[in-house]
Structure formats: C-alpha cells, structure tokens
Design a binder for these strands. Structure first.
Lengths: 209, 209
DNA sequence: CTTCTAATTTGATGGTTGTCTAATTACTGC
DNA sequence: GCAGTAATTAGACAACCATCAAATTAGAAG
C-alpha cells in the first residue's frame, strides 16, 4: 500500500498538497535535515525529539507530496530529499495564471445570454460587460448602454406598478449602483415614473417607427 | 489595530507561517486573483463563492504572513499582492542550512505559567502563545491580547515611574516588538504615560465593577 | 521457528482551522 | 440625527491533523 497519485493531473491540487506538506514545523525541520544527507526514521526521531510513529507519519505526508524518496536497506528505510521537486514546485507557485485558474471557478456561467433573442453585435456587448449574471461595469457608450437597458426593462411586467424599493431590488441583482441604472432607464424612457409618489412602471413601446 | 509583527526576528517561524498561509486552496486562489489586479473583499467573496467573513479571515491570514497589502478606499478595503514578499520567501525555502538550524528547539519550559493565578481559559492562552518565556506572536484577538497585557502590566511595580527605555527593556524580554506592546498597554489603560517627558507608570486598577 | 529490531498502522486525544450565521464596527449620504 | 453599505469580530460547529502509546508487520540472524 504505497499508492501515491502522481502529479500531472490536476496541478493546482498538487500545489496545495505541496504547501500543506511544508506547513508544519516538524516537516520543515525534516526537509532541512534531509537537505544535508539522507536519514532513516530512527535518526530523525532522535534528532527531532519525536517518537518514531510521529516521524513516520510526517514522512508519509512528505512522500505523498513527492518531496522525499524512500529506499529500503535491510530492516530500515532511508529517506532522502527530492530537491528537484522542491524547486519545480517553488517555481510553479509564482504562476499566477495557473493559480487563478485553479479556482474551480464557481463557473462564470454565461449560458443565459445565449437564450436571449439578440443580434450578434448585441450579444457581444453582453459577453464583454457581464461576468456571470453580474454587470461588471456600466457602459459609457450610449449604444452599448441601451442594449443593456432594454434587456433590463424586460424584467418589469407591463401594466404593473412597482415601488421604488421594488425597482431597486430588481436592479441590484445586476449591479450595486442601482440608482444609476434606475435613472438611466427613466432618462431613456424605458421606465415611467409617477410624479411624486415614487411609483414606476414599464413604459409602452414606441410604435417602432 | 492593524499592526502585524514584521519578519526578521525568528525567521523559521516566519517561514512556517508563510507555508501555512499558502496551505489552503481558497487562499491560493486569492493569491492567484490578486496576481492580476487588486480586489476588495466583496469581489473576492463573489468570485470565490464564499461569504465575506470567510474571505476576510483568509485575507487576515495572508496579511499576517505579509503576503498582501491593505488600502482603504471609502467604505471598502482593497487588497493587493506583495509579490516581493512571495519571491523572498520562496527563495528562503531553499536555504536548507537555515531550515536545519531551525531544529534544535529542545524543551520549551512552560512551568512558570502554572505558578500564575489564572483561570483555565487564560492559562490556555499562555500555553498557546508562549514558547518558554518568549511570546511567539502577539495575539490579534483582543480578548487573548488582554490576558497577556494584564500579566505584562504586573511586571511594573505600582507607584514607580519608569523611563521609556526602562519600559522597553522590560518588554523586550518578552517580544522583540516592544513598541507595539508598549502602545497596547497604554491604549488599554494598563500603563499611564506622562504627557511629554516619556515617563510611564502602572495604572491603578479599575474598581472592577 | 523464534527472537530481535526498524518501521508502520491503529486508535485516541487535544488542538487547530475553514466555514458559516449573527452581531458589531466603520464609513457615506441623507 | 438616521439609514444603508462594506467589512470585521464573535461564537459555533465540523473536519482535519500532530502527537503519542499500543499493537502489528516485516527483515535479519540465530
């Protein structure tokens, strides 16, 4: 039973395993000692002031992370450092791209965009301004802004009156600056507002000509 | 209260802290993300699929390891990567001599704690934050910090005036960052300070009610 | 086959830590 | 002042882990 899953499959997991393996003072000391020469379990236990089972446990962990090699000699097992692995891993740690990708990345999930009835150009706007269902930034260019606003307006049922809080709640699911969105919707006459009472409703579509 | 004891004192501990800081997939992902641009807490929580307190916790840990910087902007806090620290630490990891030296660490000798008149809970704080008579780390949690500070205050005789240097000398026997300790003692009104002359004395105990 | 030795496995225990919810603090704007 | 938002702290729970003593495996040598 000396199964150890080799690296190469899911690199990020290996990286985490690597740091976990070094995240303990006893194991760091072991690495330091093995950096000078190979040791067997009893020796290490003696030097570290730990029991043999404990050291055995640590060595198993280091071995799972591919940081040490094991060689049997008579009745004792001799552990040595895999300096190459250490170096490789430390190099990988600086690869931010890979680190960020390691995110099981709770999925951007842009599939909902495909379900919309849009021109290709408009779809592009959605893809570049949304991350998941969140608006990354409110477009400054009016044409792009309008693409988003028209879609937003459809979130309001025709003939229904909404309080300002209700409107805000709906808009907030898309971007924190709901006030800005509300104002733009009104400015572009996609949403109508009653004079003083703070009631809103979806504006009737223009005759399209 | 955003102080963090700088590296440079006991390097091996810092190295362990460094690896511990990276020994978690969430924190690795955060490092990866910060490698591309600064983020605030809410953004990270969203991208990672974690709650804000959890992310806050991780960032605090990364900050203790000096891997990220914090900058306040309005009501939000913006975290950025300290790529320099990352590199420095990774370089140190290959210094086997230093790692091996980290080993001696024979016996801590914590018997003196048993002689203190403390509740069980407070005693635990001492056991976990002291190695021998040295404070391993200044607690971040206020309740734990106070346990230590009250004990520290008792090192000053009531009614006696101490110069700042005398205060520092006493505090330095416990932790290299004596300035931090001195400030905390004053902040919590366990030590009183004369306006300009740099004289300190033990504050009278509150009526305890 | 038996015994000795080196090491691992097992089981238990106490401590650490990742994560959450709820409560609290800090800042902004009305 | 009050309300709202961003973040941290407090408290709790569960999973994990370092450590040890005791039991077990595996080699070497009689």
């Amino acid at each position: 039973m000396s199964e150890i899953t080799p690296p190469g499959s899911a690199m990020p997991d290996v990286l985490e395993q690597f740091f976990k393996a070094l995240a303990d003072s006893s194991r760091l000391r072991i690495i330091g000692l093995l950096g000078t020469r190979p040791y067997n379990v009893g020796e290490l236990a003696q030097v570290l002031g730990l029991t043999e089972p404990t050291v055995s446990h640590h060595l198993a962990r280091l071995r799972e992370a591919w940081l040490v090699n094991l060689r049997a000699e008579g009745t004792m097992r001799i552990y040595s450092l895999r300096a190459d692995m250490l170096e490789t891993m430390l190099r990988h740690a600086l690869d931010f791209e890979e680190l960020a990708r390691m995110t099981p990345a709770p999925k951007p999930d842009m599939t909902w965009v495909d379900d919309l009835d849009l021109s290709e150009a408009d779809r592009k706007v959605f893809y570049s301004y949304f991350r998941g269902r969140q608006l990354k930034q409110i477009p400054t260019k009016q044409s792009k802004l309008l693409v988003i606003l028209r879609w937003l307006a459809e979130k309001f049922a025709p003939g229904v009156q909404y309080t300002e809080d209700e409107v805000n709640a709906i808009l907030k699911t898309v971007h924190p600056d709901y006030a800005r969105l509300r104002r733009e919707l009104v400015d572009f006459k996609l949403l109508a507002r009653e004079g003083g009472g703070g009631l809103y409703w979806r504006a009737v579509e223009p005759p399209d000509a």
